[in-house]
């Protein structure tokens, strides 16, 4: 079984928002709702400024509070490590939304079930990369199998110091961030 992860090279994100639109169209996300977002943080005073760019999505946590709280088993973890939602079983109680420390879940306004990034499970089955990864103009999002030592993600995590978001909540995310800022040369 593969172990799917995403590595996000923040220095390469140019804030184009292509991922955001691609995800919405690929996954038929209703108007004004999102499975992924792009954050831009600018610190400092003119003219000494510094910017952090990063895209965020479900972390497919290894210890996922959203799954733990779900009363029906709709939210569950698959063998490949991804966290998925079985829409049939979802009662729309929203517990998982409150449980997720990353605020990546929402209630699909058209259908009422809880929804979030699926790592584009349907595309993986077809041998394609997730939609946001495929279109990432900056090649900031890199997807692959962590169990394979030769995969690009494994290499990147070996060669770079990485971090995850909100480690203090103990969710063991599988979206890894590298290069928080562009290298100064």
């Amino acid at each position: 079984m593969p172990r799917y992860v995403m590595v996000i090279d923040q220095s390469r994100c140019i804030g184009c928002m292509s991922c955001v639109v691609a995800c919405k169209r690929e996954n038929d996300v209703p108007p004004e709702q999102y499975r992924t977002r792009v954050v831009e943080m600018v610190r400092g005073e003119f003219p000494r400024l510094r910017t952090e760019m990063r895209s965020e999505l479900c972390n497919h946590c290894d210890d996922p509070p959203c799954v733990h709280i779900c009363p029906t088993g709709a939210s569950h973890q698959e063998k490949d490590g991804t966290v998925q939602i079985d829409r049939r079983k979802c009662v729309g109680c929203k517990a998982c939304i409150t449980a997720c420390p990353y605020d990546v879940r929402y209630i699909n306004e058209e259908h009422g079930y809880a929804d979030k990034c699926s790592f584009c499970q349907h595309r993986l089955k077809e041998g394609k990369e997730p939609a946001c990864v495929a279109t990432c103009v900056g090649r900031s999002r890199i997807f692959g199998d962590l169990d394979d030592p030769n995969s690009e993600v494994s290499q990147l995590l070996r060669e770079n110091s990485w971090r995850v978001l909100k480690p203090e909540v103990g969710t063991k995310p599988h979206v890894y961030y590298i290069n928080q800022f562009p290298r100064k040369s």
């Binding site: 390469r12 994100c13 140019i14 400024l49 910017t51 103009v137 040369s185």
Partner: peptide
């Protein structure tokens, strides 16, 4: 983005701190 990722030196001349300036 490739250039930024490779660590090329980017010099941005702009009265505004644009996305490019941020990189």
């Amino acid at each position: 983005a490739e250039a930024v990722g490779r660590g090329a030196k980017i010099i941005c001349v702009d009265p505004r701190y644009s996305t490019a300036a941020a990189k």
